[in-house]
Design a protein around this nucleic acid. Sequence first.
DNA 1: CGCCCATGCCTTGGGACCCGATGCATCGTC
DNA 2: GACGATGCATCGGGTCCCAAGGCATGGGCG
Lengths: 110, 110
Amino acid sequence: MISQRLATASTIPFVLALLAEGESYGYRLIQRVRALSDGELDWSEGMLYPVLHRLTREGLVEARWDDEGGGRRRRYYRLTAEGRAALDAERAEWERVQHALAALWSPRHA
Amino acid sequence: MISQRLATASTIPFVLALLAEGESYGYRLIQRVRALSDGELDWSEGMLYPVLHRLTREGLVEARWDDEGGGRRRRYYRLTAEGRAALDAERAEWERVQHALAALWSPRHA
DNA sequence: CGCCCATGCCTTGGGACCCGATGCATCGTC
DNA sequence: GACGATGCATCGGGTCCCAAGGCATGGGCG
């Protein structure tokens, strides 16, 4: 299982990257990330839903209800243009940190 | 500047990896990580010192005072065997997350 | 000699945020 | 008709970080 700290930090990039593939909804995102990580990441609902609400409030995603005949309601989310830009920024940050860590992990200095 | 969330998550691996190069002390670690990241990571003392204390309490690092003639005291830290193992575990986790993120960032599915 | 900055460690108050539990509702299965 | 899966949401407790401040020494500068 991935440590709490790292799981938390990676939540936003995962959510943004998953939504970049097309709109989705909370419960599905939880399953997708669990499958993607071979079970190493197991998001709780109490963590994810507030995150989705915050992203909506910040304008990075847009939400719509799918009532579809009165059955189980789903709330679909999709990236906004701003969200796409945030995803690119997140990716750049991750790559910078990863680069710095990789340099330490493979020491090469005199 | 690296986002707060990512900076927080990367603190432990950075500290462990820096100490794997040899013993060091708080103030120096702050400077080292700032240089390593081209200023993108700028640790505060109020963040780092509690982290070092926690790592000590958990047995991942050991601390010794360097009083050296009554001048400015320094508290040197160095990795324990347990800390070395924790570093390897951290690295494995980061690589797993990075791998999963990379797969999303470069979509390749049908 | 007096001042300030850099070095060096530490603690505290406030606030952000996550987790586990819980609630509510529908649908399929046994 | 009971239970689990699906699906959304909120709440209380706890963890942990940040900004700020405190304390102490040594060196540069006028």
